[in-house]
């Protein structure tokens, strides 16, 4: 009963946002801010065009590669700094201060090193994702009760066996939180990369639409990205809650 009322309230707010959009449309005018209904019609009509699918594929590909890099490097740094006490104590404040820097200032450097193609955007996305993955993995491994490690020593496990059978399963729920946050910021990094000096991908598409004054296209891309990010985050949160319950 209360749950349905809460959902109704939430839907009501969502409806309020669409009304706000309509009001903004009335104020800003047709070219700057298209009305909600024509935009949804445009969205349904254009989602399957080859141009949109090509850009979607590019962004998806970049996100995939960037995540692979961010997760691989982030997990490696996190496990190392979590398991090796001195490295962790020395490195943690460095990682934390890097995490809160405006990384967009480093994008030109990334572009100079990796070039204007797909690899520059992948590297920039990965640069965003590595830090939260590393920091949360490190925290997760540090929080493992020392008795687990003593048990691993008693069983004479090799370092690899210790990581695979003791450290990772014990740390998994919190590590997964790092992977979820890493996903969010990697997506943001890839999109920021596409918005500057790029011709492909959804971020480039929205900048292109701005220049051509195509309000419907801008809103369409924004809505698709919002929906994708929210759904992906919801899915990852669902897995995360299950992992937390299991332990």
């Amino acid at each position: 009963m209360t749950a349905t009322r809460r959902t109704a309230d939430t839907l009501f707010i969502l409806f309020g946002l669409v009304v706000l959009w309509e009001i903004l449309h009335r104020i800003a005018g047709e070219t700057a801010m298209p009305a909600p209904l024509p935009t949804f019609a445009y969205l349904l009509h254009n989602l399957t065009t080859p141009r949109f699918i090509a850009n979607l594929t590019t962004t998806g590909l970049e996100l995939g590669y960037a995540l692979l890099l961010a997760y691989g490097i982030g997990l490696a740094i996190g496990v190392w700094m979590g398991a090796h006490r001195l490295s962790g104590a020395v490195g943690e404040p460095i990682l934390v201060s890097l995490y809160s820097l405006p990384k967009i200032t480093l994008y030109p450097v990334v572009l100079l090193i990796f070039g204007l193609g797909i690899s520059g955007k992948v590297a920039f996305g990965a640069l965003h994702g590595v830090l939260p993955v590393a920091l949360l993995t490190m925290g997760a491994i540090r929080a493992i009760p020392p008795v687990y490690l003593r048990a691993a020593r008693t069983l004479q496990l090799s370092p690899w066996q210790t990581i695979a059978t003791v450290l990772l399963p014990a740390a998994l729920p919190e590590v997964f939180t790092g992977l979820r946050i890493g996903f969010t910021v990697t997506l943001l990094g890839v999109l920021l990369g596409e918005m500057f000096a790029s011709k492909e991908g959804l971020g480039a598409m929205i900048m292109n639409a701005l220049q051509l004054v195509q309000g419907e296209e801008m809103m369409t891309v924004a809505i698709v990205l919002f929906a994708f990010a929210a759904l992906a985050n919801g899915f990852l949160l669902f897995i995360e809650h299950r992992l937390h319950r299991r332990v």
């Binding site: 997506l187 999109l191 920021l192 900048m207 990010a229 985050n233």
Partner: peptide, 9 residues
């Protein structure tokens, strides 16, 4: 979790 920045344009 959503890229709010995409609204800048």
């Amino acid at each position: 979790a959503v890229p709010v920045f995409i609204f800048y344009p």
